[in-house]
Design a protein around this nucleic acid. Structure first.
Length: 399
RNA sequence: GCGCAGGUGGCAGAGCGGUCAAUUGCAUCAGACUGUAAAUCUGACGCCUUCGGGCUACGGGGGUUCGAAUCCCUCCCUGCGCACCA
C-alpha cells in the first residue's frame, strides 16, 4: 500500500510538471500524511476551459486522489474590474450576472476533471470587494516593482514600448493575497504563471504565514503544434466541445505532440505511456496511436460510448471520405436558385465574395459533385448534401 | 504642462500626393499530397457585381487639391524625453 502511494507521489511531482518550488519541502509534506490545501486560480473571463487549463486541473485531481483538499479560487473580483491585458479588446467589465452564468458553465466543465463535491470554492470578490484602502496599501507595500516586472511578458512589453497598465501589475498581488486568505499550502498553475505564483509566497511571508509551495505544470502546444494553446491563437481544444469535434481536433495535432498529450491530458498510467513511446519508435503508424490518444481524452469529458462513436465517425468522414453521420438539416422549397445565394443562405460562407472564391477553388460540392461555376443555377429536386471544403456540410431537404 | 515620435487590414509592419483595396511576414481559407497528420507545393485572402466595374476603408472630425493612407488644422489615444514629484 505504501509503495503505491510513493509511486503516486512521484507521478504527482514529475508528470507534466515544469517545476516544483520547493521540491524537497513539498515532497516531505506529501509524505507526512498531512492534508494539504491545494490552490488553483480560475479566471472567469474566458468563455470556456480548454486543454491548456486541463493540465493543471488534472494535476489537482491527482492531489485529490491522494486525499488533499482542493481549493478553487474564482477570480470574479478581477473579472468585474475588467481585464486590461488584452489591449484594444473589450475592456468593459463583465456584469456580475454574466459572471454568474459563466461560472455555472465552468463548474460543469471543471467537474469533468476534478471532484467538485470535495472541492472548496471561493470567489475572491468576497475579500477584495470590501478591502479598505489601508489594507490595500499594506498589500502593495509587500512587493517591489522590480519583482513584479520580472515577468517575462512585462519585460518584453517594456522593450517593445507596449503599455502596461498599473492594474495589470496588481494582478500577481491579488493572486498572492488569495493564497493568504485561503491559507494555501501549495499553489498550482501553468509554467507561465511562475512569477505570479511565487508572489504568493512573498505576500504570505509579509502576512506572517508559512509560504506555499509552488507546482507549475507544463504548457502544451495547441493544434498548430507550435504555439502554446490559447484562445487568442485560436489553436485550442475546449473541454466543452462536442465529442466529434474534440476527437477531430486531437487527430490534427502533429505527431511529435502525442506523448506530451498522453502525459498531460490523460490518466493513462506512466508505465503504459512508456510502452506507447516504444511503439511509436518501432514504427507503428502514429495515426493508430493518435486514435487511442483521442479516445482516452474524449472519454474523460464525454464518456466511453461517445468516445467510441467519435472514433467511428472520424474513420467514416476522413479516412473513407463519406458524409458525416449527423449533418445540420435545412428545409427548402424546390425552386431554383443561384449557388451563391444558396451558400450564403445556408451560412456556409461569410460573404458572397468568399463563396465565389471557394467555387473557383473547386471547394464546393453538391452531393459529391464539384460545382465550379459561380453563376450556376441550382434547382434541387430531392434531398441533397451541400459541402464546402472538408468540414462544412449542410443537408437540404425539399419541402 | 512642454518637446519629439507614432496611430495602416486578425496581428506584426511597409507605403508618405495619382500606377493603393494598399509591398511583405505570420495567422486564416481552399486545392494537391496524406493519416483531416505535420512538412511541402499551388492559389485565395474588404463588400457587391450582369465581370465592364461599383462601393466602403489607412484613429475621429474638418480642410487644401482635378485627385489624399500620403499635405494642413483640430480632437482623441500611445510611446519616449524634459519638467513636476521623490
Amino acid at each position: 500500500m505504501k509503495v503505491v502511494a510513493e509511486e503516486k507521489i512521484k507521478t504527482l511531482l514529475t508528470r507534466a510538471v515544469s517545476e516544483v518550488i520547493i521540491r524537497d519541502h513539498l515532497e516531505a509534506a506529501l509524505k507526512s500524511g498531512k492534508k494539504l490545501r491545494i490552490k488553483l486560480g480560475i479566471d472567469p473571463t474566458a468563455p470556456d476551459i480548454h486543454f491548456g487549463h486541463a493540465v493543471s486541473l488534472l494535476k489537482l485531481r491527482q492531489f485529490q486522489e491522494l486525499g488533499h483538499q482542493a481549493v478553487l479560487i474564482i477570480g470574479d473580483f478581477t473579472a468585474r474590474i475588467g481585464d486590461p491585458t488584452g489591449r484594444m479588446e473589450a475592456r468593459q467589465a463583465l456584469s456580475s450576472q454574466t459572471i454568474k452564468s459563466n461560472l455555472k458553465n465552468y463548474l460543469k466543465q471543471i467537474g469533468k476533471i476534478i471532484d467538485i463535491g470535495k472541492t472548496e470554492i471561493h470567489y475572491n470578490n468576497k475579500w477584495f470587494g470590501k478591502m479598505g484602502a489601508q489594507e490595500f496599501y499594506n498589500l502593495t507595500s509587500s512587493v517591489t516593482v522590480q519583482q513584479v516586472m520580472k515577468r517575462d511578458d512585462f519585460r518584453k512589453r517594456i522593450e517593445n514600448n507596449h503599455d502596461i497598465a498599473i492594474s495589470e501589475m496588481m494582478y500577481p498581488l491579488f493572486q498572492g493575497y488569495d493564497s493568504v486568505m485561503i491559507r494555501a499550502d501549495v499553489e498550482l498553475g501553468g509554467e507561465d504563471q511562475k512569477v505570479n505564483l511565487l508572489m504568493g509566497r512573498r505576500v504570505q511571508r509579509a502576512h506572517d504565514m508559512p509560504e506555499q509551495d509552488v507546482l507549475t505544470t507544463r504548457l502544451i502546444e495547441g493544434t498548430d503544434g507550435s504555439k502554446k494553446m490559447s484562445k487568442s491563437s485560436n489553436n485550442y481544444i475546449g473541454v466543452a466541445e462536442k465529442s466529434d469535434v474534440m476527437f477531430g481536433k486531437i487527430m490534427s495535432i502533429p505527431d511529435s505532440l502525442i506523448l506530451k498529450y498522453f502525459e498531460a491530458l490523460t490518466m493513462v498510467p506512466d508505465s503504459e505511456i512508456e510502452k506507447i513511446g516504444l511503439k511509436l519508435k518501432s514504427g507503428e503508424n502514429p495515426k493508430n496511436i493518435k486514435m487511442q490518444l483521442a479516445g482516452e481524452i474524449v472519454k474523460i469529458y464525454h464518456g466511453e460510448k461517445k468516445a467510441e462513436k467519435a472514433a467511428l465517425e472520424f474513420e467514416r468522414v476522413f479516412s473513407k471520405k463519406e458524409f458525416p453521420d449527423k449533418i445540420a438539416t435545412v428545409i427548402l422549397s424546390d425552386e431554383g436558385r443561384n449557388i451563391l445565394n444558396l451558400l450564403s443562405e445556408m451560412l456556409l460562407v461569410k460573404s458572397k465574395s468568399e463563396a465565389r472564391r471557394l467555387i473557383l477553388e473547386n471547394a464546393v460540392k453538391l452531393d459529391g459533385k464539384i460545382i465550379n461555376d459561380p453563376r450556376a443555377k441550382i434547382s434541387i429536386k430531392k434531398d441533397a448534401i451541400l459541402q464546402v471544403g472538408k468540414k462544412r456540410f449542410v443537408k437540404i431537404k425539399i419541402k
